[in-house]
């Protein structure tokens, strides 16, 4: 029984780290631009396909690292393109509903486009560790999973440093907290928007490579991560980065423990139950700002 508990917590932490990594870009974009982007998970899908192509001609570790770089770059650019062509024109004459509808449209377009271009056949990304596993008595897992956990944490660490230690990073946070005041500081908001989208989408692209290596790459792979990322974002507080990080881990562990000890059938609903509970007690999410500040 004890070993099952440890195993489930480990499973939850690992999957949670990926949830966090995807949610962090979503929440950043929401924080800065107030855009709920339902196509966010598709950035991961595109990142994973970028990796499929890089690994096709560059196998092994080089291919894998190259994939990460290529996915971040390609999806970052895709993020900027969608921001400029799809979301930017709506920002001034928008209602939130318009933006949500447009992002759902974008989600459908990207998913179907990728099926058209890449085909529906699921692909695998090569595991750089040759699918080696570790059995530690209390739990078993693959080296790849541990690596993904470490990699997500490091990526989030770098993002944290960037947002806290660089002038540009602080400007992104400032813009997300108070857009008008940011304008009065001489921050070029349009530049911040572009950068935020590039960064948020780029991270989702990297998460897509991890997700694709752990699972598989297929056109509809973005839907589930989008859903999870929204749960995480609402849980942690919309636009709150720390909330997204902790929210991801909380959701991951809650799902595995709830699935294991309460009901497997409701594993995917557990996130929503948690959201309802959290929102009853803290209407702005676990880490959300209180009204008025």
């Amino acid at each position: 029984m004890e070993s099952l508990f440890v195993q489930q917590v480990v499973n939850g932490i690992i999957i949670g780290s990926i949830y966090s990594l995807i949610a962090i870009g979503l929440t950043m974009i929401f924080g800065v631009m107030k855009i709920c982007n339902f196509a966010h998970g598709d950035y991961s899908m595109v990142g994973a396909y970028a990796a499929v192509f890089v690994m096709a001609w560059l196998p092994g570790w080089f291919g894998w690292i190259g994939s990460i770089v290529a996915a971040a770059a390609a999806v970052g650019i895709l993020g900027v393109i969608t921001e400029r062509l799809v979301f930017r024109p709506l920002l001034t004459r928008r209602t939130d509903i318009d933006i949500i509808m447009v992002s759902i449209g974008l989600f459908i377009v990207l998913e179907n486009l990728s099926q058209l271009v890449f085909g529906a056949t699921p692909r695998m990304l090569q595991d750089p560790f040759g699918s080696a596993t570790v059995n530690l008595g209390l739990f078993s897992t693959s080296i790849l999973r541990l690596f993904c956990l470490a990699f997500s944490c490091i990526a989030m660490g770098f993002l944290h440093l960037f947002l806290n230690r660089t002038q540009t990073g602080i400007a992104i946070r400032a813009t997300s907290q108070n857009r008008n005041a940011a304008l009065l500081m001489g921050i070029d908001i349009s530049h911040v928007y572009t950068l935020t989208f590039a960064l948020g989408a780029g991270i989702a692209g990297i998460a897509g490579v991890l997700y694709g290596t752990l699972f598989a790459v297929f056109p509809t792979m973005g839907a589930l991560p989008t859903l999870k990322a929204f749960v995480v974002t609402i849980l942690g507080g919309m636009g709150n980065l720390r909330g997204a990080v902790f929210g991801g881990f909380i959701l991951g562990v809650a799902e595995t423990l709830g699935g294991s000890y309460i009901s497997m059938q409701y594993k995917n609903s557990i996130g929503f139950v948690i959201i309802i509970l959290v929102l009853l007690i803290r209407p702005n999410g676990l880490f959300g700002r209180r009204e008025g500040t």
Binding site: I170, R173, A174, Q177, N178, N180, A181, A182, L184, R289, T293
Partner: peptide, 10 residues
């Protein structure tokens, strides 16, 4: 600006 408008989480 009116109402200070500081960045609350900076």
């Amino acid at each position: 600006p009116e109402g200070r408008e500081v960045f609350p989480e900076l």
